[in-house]
Nucleic acid binder design. Structure first.
Lengths: 105, 105
DNA sequence: CGCAAGTATAACTATGTGGTTATTTGGTTA
DNA sequence: TAACCAAATAACCACATAGTTATACTTGCG
């Protein structure tokens, strides 16, 4: 059964959320639980504005949850499938690395 | 354990390969086995040049295999993790759709 | 109230890339 | 060899978006 163009778009959008190192780094920061924006900013090497922007994207894609606490905002991974996804991809990359590289020639 | 920037880049690159509807459609065409370039072109609504370009990207990302047969080139999904990935994402989107939409107000 | 801290948004630039048309390469057959 | 097909590449344009700087919003507190 093939997906309609509309659904392909939705699938693509979800994958796209994972297609930037900065966003992956943000996700990685939250793997042991929720983190505030400023905690994430401290851990990374980019600006607060950029972190906010990427968090917004991840939130709107349905990957993260968000709650306010005082003046802070705590983000967390909202679906365990995120871990599965990352595991699958990492496993594949490890398999590829393990493969003996075919010599050219 | 956190991934090094280099590894984040590699993970991102893999996810990026799945982040375009056209490439997902191409992958979908091959879910029951290998397909020639022209078969894929026929099934989609884009040009042969574009299909070739996207196939190249998918091949170089390690997602597809390739073999020549006469004047044709047959591509196939090279790693079953592709199916797992797509299943995970589709399942999530279905779960999200099933959720009662919270009213705004 | 006024100030400070945490977060979000706006405006902008630079870069990457999806898609197109036109051309080329490579293999097959007459 | 020439003609023909499949596939790949080149050159180009248009658009999306990651990241930046500057500014606005929001909440807590003196």
């Amino acid at each position: 059964m093939k997906l309609a163009p509309n659904d392909l778009e939705r699938v693509a959008t979800l994958f796209r959320a994972f297609s930037e190192p900065t966003r992956l780094a943000i996700i990685q920061e939250m793997k042991d639980g929720e983190k505030s924006v400023s905690e994430i900013v401290e851990a990374l090497t980019t600006t607060q504005a950029n972190v906010s922007k990427q968090l917004r994207l991840l939130y709107e894609t349905g990957i993260l949850t968000r709650r306010k606490e005082g003046t802070s905002v705590l983000y967390a991974i909202g679906d365990p499938m995120v871990f599965e996804l990352c595991r699958l991809v990492c496993d594949k990359l490890n398999r590829d690395l393990a493969k003996p590289k075919r010599l050219k020639f």
